[in-house]
Design a binder for these strands. Structure first.
Lengths: 258, 258
DNA sequence: TAGTGGTCTAGACCACCAT
DNA sequence: TGGTGGTCTAGACCACTAT
């Protein structure tokens, strides 16, 4: 086991280092239970809080998860879904009758559920307005908020913005938007998504997001700001996807200009 | 200060909630110093460790950063670089003589520096071998590790894998790979990057990554596994980019199939 | 030197879970 | 019921920063 002199001085780091070594060496496999905090403390001749601090460091790295009343466990790799640009494609829908989300859930043998949490007329946030090529004060939009579940486990929160003028009087104001979903209705209004742009950042979940997504500590989110551009290259829809990053990844394929 | 009944039970949550409210209301602006732990404790009639726990919760959300001996401060928004597929484009290089990284640093008025930390012949990890269409045991690769700095602040760690047969006897074994960099040399060997694929996840930094990137707690990383495909659609190079997520984002533009 | 965060101790009680 | 993590207390000393 390699010694890390800079990290090995403090009791909490020493304990964390020892446990981390057991995990990376495979002696503690994913799903295995760690020694209890009290036992670790005793073994290393430290106070319980010190062992607890060591566990906290490992939890922050995403290596372990604590379960109240049961113990601390080596975190198991989650099956990940890699979402790519095909999630906007209407081809899969035409061919299978399923949205990309439902199709992926079917592949994994999980039960999909989409909860529409709100449908409102709002002034959009600055970054959304900017991408719709408008200043917020002169723009009114429809905002639809959804939560996507797999087997009743929340996977992602999606917020969609559409100019109010484009949404008014259409099924977009209803929870059920009809066949082909939102993009189906927008096509009827003359908007065909020809180009998409995804702007991606990673960050820790906000207080409320952590709550909605039931995120354990040490799991960040992938925040994707999507803009749909029509056949004229004009933006007509903006969505923000917030994925829990231990379940979802992204993939993009692109040609290189020379 | 608004009361949040669900969060307001525990002293540490109450303190965190109160401070969070001050921040989101703008009464504590980015860069501002929070009351000291001892002062917070006294104000809320709690022990110092309890106030400390409240601060820890906020740090985990990425809202504040502690600076030893100085205080706890509301985290300032960092200027972000959005890396897109153009970072693989050789056009910018031809037109400006600068790599995309150096160009971006010039835009921001920062001093770029690239440190080559190792150049070795290795058996690649499984996921890399898979993307080079080979099983690890039968594959030998050149691995180049780089760290990219802006004003001596580490921004990203990049590890590049190239089949050993393609790298042997070329300047790819040297720290300085010559004009056009790695892709320049690979073109001379007959590989033109025609298609790129980026697979993206977000996660907390490993122990060692947190150290090399000098990451404060509450900052995740964006982990991009890039595959370069040549004019025949065959993979010839795989790179892993690990960005600190508070400084770097990604952007992809794509056409939609109908 | 005074004030700050960083770490540690040695207890205590509570909430949750399995048996 | 016993073991587990979750939280809290009331101290202590150390390391760093500013003045």
């Amino acid at each position: 086991m390699s010694q890390d002199p800079a990290q090995g001085q403090l009791p909490s780091r020493r304990i964390a280092h020892a446990v981390r070594a057991l995990i990376t060496a495979g002696e503690l496999a994913p799903g295995d239970k760690l020694p209890s905090e009290r036992e670790l403390a005793q073994r290393f001749g430290a106070a319980r809080n010190t062992a607890r601090e060591a566990i906290r460091l490992l939890a922050e790295e995403g290596l372990v998860t604590a379960r109240h009343g049961r113990g601390v466990f080596v975190r198991e790799k989650q099956r990940m879904v890699r979402w790519g640009s095909e999630r906007y494609s209407r081809r899969t829908y035409r061919e299978t009758g399923l949205t990309p989300f439902r199709l992926e859930m079917a592949r994994q043998g999980k039960t999909p559920r989409v909860e529409v949490t709100s449908i409102e007329q709002v002034t959009p946030p600055f970054d959304v307005a900017e991408r719709l090529k408008a200043s917020p004060e002169e723009l009114s939009t429809l905002r639809r908020c959804n939560i996507y579940y797999a087997d009743d486990e929340p996977l992602q929160v999606v917020t969609t913005y559409i100019r109010w003028a484009d949404a008014e009087g259409t099924p977009l104001l209803q929870p059920e938007t009809g066949p082909g979903g939102i993009y189906g209705r927008l096509e009827e209004r003359g908007y065909t998504m020809t180009t998409g742009r995804d702007e991606i950042i990673a960050r820790m979940a906000s207080h409320t997001e952590a709550h909605t997504l039931q995120l354990p500590p040490g799991v960040p989110v992938l925040d994707v700001l999507h803009t749909s551009l029509d056949q004229r290259g004009e933006p007509f829809e903006v969505s923000r996807f917030v994925h829990r990053a231990d379940r979802a990844g992204l993939v993009y394929t692109f040609s290189i200009e020379h």
